[in-house]
């Protein structure tokens, strides 16, 4: 057996169907939407946010809700004529609309829903995702207490797939890892975004936006 004819280990692995290597980023994903940040697209599986799915953003209690990673996506949605719905925005802050307009968001496409209890809030998230007219849901599902279960997130995933919409959940750090079946889990600190979990990848890259 000569060295030149022997296939390398990686060639063997490559040629073996059904074998997946943990370091790879799966690229055969369904469809993605660009995040608007090249450095973020580079580390995300498929090169962007999932076109339809659930993203969890872990937020420290003292932190303001981080929006800037999603601003280009929001603008894209609004330009495409789709609605953006905010569900259960934390009580202390309000969306300061002049800034949203500066970012290029048509306020007429924006809707804020403040349900009185948790089950209603979760129902609003699901119905918004299911509606074809709504492209993006920004929600604070734990604002009124409670834990996100597998089943709840699964329902939202199905609703998002049905409505071709993206759901971004802002959850407090203490609830980190509550919903194991989200597409993507991020942590945002200032301009720094860390991918905690991405379906189809084992890496946890950190990106400066």
């Amino acid at each position: 057996m000569s060295d030149s004819t022997a296939p390398s280990l990686s060639d063997v692995l490559q040629a073996t169907p059904g074998l997946w290597r943990g370091r790879d980023v799966r690229t055969d994903r369904e469809s993605v939407r660009a995040t608007g940040f090249a450095c973020l697209d580079a580390v995300l599986p498929g090169g962007g946010w999932p076109a339809a799915g659930v993203i969890e953003v872990v937020v420290e209690a003292s932190q303001p809700p981080p929006l800037h990673p999603f601003l280009p996506t929001m603008v894209d949605c609004v330009r495409a004529g789709q609605r953006v719905v905010l569900v259960d925005v934390p009580a202390g802050v309000v969306p300061f609309t002049p800034a949203w307009q500066q970012a290029g968001i048509d306020l007429k496409q924006l809707l804020m829903v403040q349900p009185d209890d948790r089950s209603n809030a979760w129902w609003v998230i699901e119905t918004a995702l299911r509606s074809a007219a709504c492209g993006l849901v920004l929600a604070w599902p734990c604002a009124q207490g409670g834990r996100l279960g597998l089943a709840t997130v699964r329902r939202w995933q199905l609703a998002a797939a049905a409505g071709r919409s993206l759901c971004i959940l802002f959850v407090p750090a203490r609830a980190n890892g509550q919903a194991p079946n989200v597409h993507l889990r991020l942590q945002v600190q200032g301009a720094c975004v860390q991918v905690l979990k991405a379906r189809g990848s084992h890496q946890r890259p950190v990106v400066q936006l």
């Binding site: 609605r83 969306p95 007429k108 809707l111 804020m112 829903v113 349900p115 009185d116 709504c134």
Partner: peptide
């Protein structure tokens, strides 16, 4: 139509003050 129907369902269940638009 689908959108209006969705918004109206929210209003029906949560009360119209729970569903608000943002202006400037």
């Amino acid at each position: 139509d689908d959108w209006l129907a969705t918004v109206e369902r929210w209003q029906a269940r949560l009360g119209s003050q729970a569903v608000q638009g943002l202006g400037s």
